[in-house]
């Protein structure tokens, strides 16, 4: 679920931080820059793990800051394909079940990956697994918000969310559409296997 990513950066330390040890100042700059951000095709950055190399620092004409080339390793949230994760249902919509891990919210289980057969209950705003009890009867299993859910990671997608890349759209509704689809890191999960889904389903 978590990985280490190796990265390189030229870090600028402004003079007001010169009282700190260089390592500490750089560590805090890197955390300020990356923590809780998604890096394209890497994942959600959590925190600096360690600094592997520090090269010489330079001061450029006209700028009082020091610039240091630094290699470091960062803790990144990036589950591998087929990984089994435990989360909580955030909400449900006709598009599927939205799951949150607390620190990461952009997980969706689309209707085709739910247990079969499932239907969306409009009044309860929840997905329901119509469990076949074997004697011809159906038992409705509701997937309510807040419940713990075990799912398998089946796909991931990264999107560039650079503000300049959005072309000016002609009307307001179009704008909302485009901002909705701009989730930088979206994980798709599935629960259509025995053992997956709400924890309470499989207790016994």
């Amino acid at each position: 679920m978590f990985i280490l990513a190796e990265m390189k950066n030229v870090t600028r330390i402004t003079p007001d931080l010169f009282n700190l040890k260089l390592n500490d100042a750089i560590a805090s700059e890197l955390n300020k820059k990356l923590a809780n951000k998604v890096v394209l095709n890497v994942g959600l950055c959590i925190a600096l793990y360690d600094i592997t190399t520090l090269q010489e620092s330079y001061v450029f004409p006209g700028d009082g800051s020091s610039h240091t080339r630094v290699s470091f390793r960062y803790i990144v949230f990036r589950p591998f394909m087929e990984e089994i994760l435990l989360g909580k249902i955030r909400c449900s919509s006709p598009e599927g079940v939205h799951v949150s891990l607390g620190f990461f919210d952009d997980i969706i289980i689309p209707p085709t990956y739910l247990q079969h057969p499932s239907r969306f209950d409009e009044t309860e705003q929840a997905w329901v697994w119509e469990y076949d009890t074997g004697d011809g009867n159906k038992h409705d299993l509701f997937m309510d918000a807040g419940e713990s859910i075990r799912f398998k990671v089946t796909a991931e997608s990264f999107h560039e969310t650079c503000p300049t890349s959005t072309a000016p759209s002609t009307n307001v509704s179009e704008k909302i559409d485009s901002s909705d689809s701009k989730i930088p890191y979206l994980i798709t999960g599935s629960i259509n296997e025995p053992g997956l889904g709400l924890l309470t389903w499989w207790d016994n």
Binding site: F2, I3, L4, A5, M7, K8, N41, I46, I75, F80
Partner: peptide, 24 residues
């Protein structure tokens, strides 16, 4: 910024938890 390796190692949940606790 430059990415040298986007997956140089896997961390267990335990390792991440300990690291974050130390940080906190």
């Amino acid at each position: 910024m430059e990415i040298i390796s986007s997956n140089s190692a896997q961390l267990s949940n335990y390792e991440v938890m300990k690291h974050l606790q130390k940080l906190k």
